[in-house]
Design a protein around this nucleic acid. Structure first.
Lengths: 234, 234
DNA sequence: GTATTTATTAACAATACATTAAGCCTTAGA
DNA sequence: TCTAAGGCTTAATGTATTGTTAATAAATAC
């Protein structure tokens, strides 16, 4: 996927319909991930990083409403649509109450859907990261501000972090002393995991290690085949 | 109106319908202003500060689409809905193209409307704080008056600021030590963000930096790809 | 011991930013 | 009416930052 492509999660148990929708959105230059039930949907949502979710309401195991509620708990700002054959007022209201941005009744016009997707994604949502409220961290003797993208050791000359350095360090800190699985980081930051993104991540780990050398009590350990671990000794 | 009440502008030429809608929203604890045509609507929009606009599409003199377009030009972020008896696909698409957040067909369910209003208003919109009458600031050793547009270092020879310099410095000060996202500044000051307005902004940043050099404890830092930060060391 | 995974540095192209200068309006005032 | 000044945009040019890939070395697993 390209960097400016928006990433959409579709959760739809109807295989045919789901795929048609997926293809249609791909055709319109979105990057699409299709999950075929609520469980899988939640799993993908947690591992990857989406700009929009489109949730079918009626699904076995875990219905769309439940899924929507869980998604909203994890991320306060991500927009999502409900998709349903039911147009019962109570359902529509329930959808909005959960925090949906729209409730679409099947069948719906594909161009209208596209317009609505654009409307939602075009909304300037500068502070839309779920975690965006949390951006000040301490890492040993360092102070790390992921909003302003700096890492300072002794107040004086803060190291400016690039967006990728920043995101990676942030994920490491959020899992401090714990494993940050490689795949999770790749999906969240690079939105894709393959040979090249993986090499790229290694490069960034090396960069961060260089910065963090100032405090010998801080280090990034590798867990072979698993991921990385930011360790702080005190 | 109370401080936490949201302010909604309704533009609707049907006197009866407009008033019913207004009363209904007031009943639901919104502060509502009703304009009875596009001209009046634009006038009210420019004079007051709203959280949401609800525009009827078919109106004499100035139709809702035109009005919506003008509103969007004035304010990139304010949400608005279109209201129409027409459900023609082209109209719906046109509405979204203009930048609407929703397109409601009459008759619509009032509870659903309420749900949609809530959905839109719950979205965070930080930078839409009303242009308050705060205009005297201290920036390190400088005094800055954004009403009189001057910046003085030692009482003596105040630097006269041009309107653009003034607006930009004001935005920076309002976010002192914090990030001022590029796009926010462009939308607020230049009302458009593209290559040229962005270059223009850079020119103004350079101008401000030149002025601010008098106090070495004050500087404008860039956060690559994000925006600028006015930093004051003490 | 060999294949796989990780580490580190460097080269590179693509953007983003910085700064000065030039041009083009608009407006105040001769 | 003409001119000068101010304000803003665009151009021109240079510098910095960023992310990917390559190249090479080291560590780890089986």
């Amino acid at each position: 996927m390209t960097a400016d492509q928006k990433k959409i999660l579709i959760v739809e148990d109807d295989f045919n319909f789901g795929n048609i929708l997926k293809d249609y959105l791909i055709l319109n230059d979105y990057f699409v991930v299709l999950a075929k039930n609520g469980i899988e949907g939640m799993d993908k949502f947690q591992k990857e990083d989406f700009d929009l979710c489109i949730l079918d309401v009626m699904m076995p195991f875990k219905d769309g409403f439940t899924l929507g509620k869980e998604i909203r708990e994890k991320n306060e700002n991500i927009p999502f649509f409900f998709l349903s054959a039911k147009t019962l007022k109570e359902d529509v209201l329930k959808g909005f109450k959960i925090g949906a941005d729209d409730y679409l009744s099947k069948p719906f016009d594909s161009e209208v859907l596209l317009a609505k997707i654009k409307a939602v994604l075009n909304r300037k949502n500068f502070y839309n990261a779920p975690e965006s409220d949390i951006y000040e961290f301490e890492i040993g003797k360092f102070k790390f501000n992921s909003k302003l993208r700096y890492l300072s050791f002794d107040e004086e000359d803060p190291i400016k972090l690039s967006p990728k350095e920043n995101q990676l360090l942030r994920l490491l800190v959020l899992n401090i002393n714990d494993l940050l699985p490689r795949e999770i980081a790749l999906n969240k930051i690079w939105r894709d995991h393959n040979y090249f993104t993986s090499r790229s991540m290694d490069v960034y780990i090396a960069k961060l290690r260089k910065y963090l050398k100032l405090d010998s009590g801080v280090e990034i350990l590798n867990i072979h085949g698993e991921g990385f671990r930011l360790v702080v000794k005190n």
